[in-house]
Nucleic acid binder design. Sequence first.
DNA 1: CTCCCGATAT
DNA 2: ATATCAGGAG
Length: 210
Amino acid sequence: MRINKATRDNILAALAATYGGATTALEYGSPFELLVAVVLSAQCTDTRVNIITSRLFPAYDTPAKMLGLGEEGLAELIRDCGLYRAKARNLIAACAMLLEDYGGEVPGNFDDLTRLPGVGRKTANVLLSQLFAVPAIAVDTHVFRVARRLGLATGKTPEQVEEGLMKVVPRHDWSDAHHWLIWHGRKICKARRPDCEGCPLKELCPSAFK
DNA sequence: CTCCCGATAT
DNA sequence: ATATCAGGAG
């Protein structure tokens, strides 16, 4: 669904006004902790990730400490977030790579981040924008769904939606717009039963149920 | 494309 | 019962 520039700018202004102070819901105390939290957040609510990390981070807050857990030990601690074997395997391998190649620090560029096992395009963009103030639009399930419903972007893949959003959102708003779309997706524009009646964008949205 | 996967909402 | 949740790897 294509929309004109005036409508698009009104939508972006309304999102900014409604979700202006939005930021991540993931709780973390260091770049490494955010890396772990974002990997755990795949196909899992942020609320549950925070429950898990509140038990994990006090004892395992560095690559060296987490590596000492081993896959089995880590898997047991993160079991409740689902996909736990793959996440444990990837995180342990990522800890080893961080120590081996990056001095135990989280690298600050896209290519190095996506070399880490379990870190793909979306996670890398989250870390770049959140940790290094690099303008980026991480397209997760909410951003993908909401951007398309609002007519801000088209395309069949997250990467296509990311490209579309970068064209219509001013660069200095990329990181913020990512959070606006996530919170709108959580609170109003939900996957299963969107609350179009209570939506502040219902007059502007090409997908609104009227 | 399939697989990984438990917790929660509907 | 089923869809969905801050995806990524093979």
